[in-house]
Amino acid sequence: MRVLVTGATGVLGSAVLPALREAGVAVRATSRKPRPDTGSGIDWITADLTTGAGVAEAVAEVDAVVHLAAAPYKGKYTDRVEIDGTRLLTEAAARAGVSHLLYTSIVGTDRVPWGYFQSKVRGEEVVRDAPLPWSILRATQFHAFVDRAFTMMAKLGVLITDPGIAAQPVAVGDVAERIRDRIERGPSGSVENFGGPEVLAFDEAARQWLEVRGTRRPVLRLTLPGTLGAAFRGGHLTTDAQPTGTVSWQQYLVAKYR
Rank of each mutant, 00 (worst) to 15 (best):
K155V: 01
R128S: 00
T151A: 15
R185Y: 00
E177M: 06
A139I: 00
A144E: 13
I165F: 05
R178F: 01
D181H: 07
V172H: 01
R182S: 09
A144Y: 09
V170I: 15
A167Q: 05
R178L: 06
W134A: 09
M152Y: 11
D147L: 12
V175E: 10
W134Y: 15
R138I: 04
G173S: 03
V146W: 14
K155R: 14
I160M: 14
M152E: 02
I179D: 07
G186T: 03
A144S: 08
R180F: 06
P133I: 05
P131W: 11
G157F: 02
D174Y: 07
R148W: 14
G173H: 03
D147H: 13
F142I: 01
G173Y: 10
I179N: 12
A176V: 07
I165L: 08
D162A: 03
V172S: 03
E184C: 00
G157E: 02
G186K: 04
G164Q: 05
E177Q: 10
K155H: 11
T161G: 04
P169L: 02
S188A: 05
I136H: 01
R138L: 04
D162V: 03
R148T: 14
E184H: 13
P187G: 03
L137P: 13
M153A: 10
A139S: 15
I183M: 03
F150G: 10
I165D: 12
H143T: 06
G164L: 04
A130C: 15
W134L: 06
T161A: 08
R148L: 06
P169I: 04
V175Q: 11
F145K: 01
I183R: 05
W134G: 10
E184S: 09
L137W: 06
G164W: 06
E184K: 12
V146Y: 07
E177D: 13
P187I: 00
F142M: 01
P169K: 00
R138E: 02
A166G: 01
L159F: 01
T161S: 07
I183L: 12
T161Q: 08
F145C: 01
E184D: 05
A154F: 00
G164N: 03
H143Q: 08
W134E: 10
L132M: 13
K155Y: 05
L159A: 04
M153H: 11
M152V: 12
A154Q: 02
P163D: 13
L137E: 09
A166V: 02
R180Q: 07
L156K: 15
D129F: 00
R178M: 05
A154C: 06
A171L: 05
P163M: 12
E177I: 00
T151N: 08
H143S: 14
V146S: 00
D181I: 00
F150A: 10
D174L: 14
I160G: 02
A176G: 04
D174R: 11
A144W: 05
V172A: 04
R178K: 06
F150P: 12
D162P: 07
L132K: 08
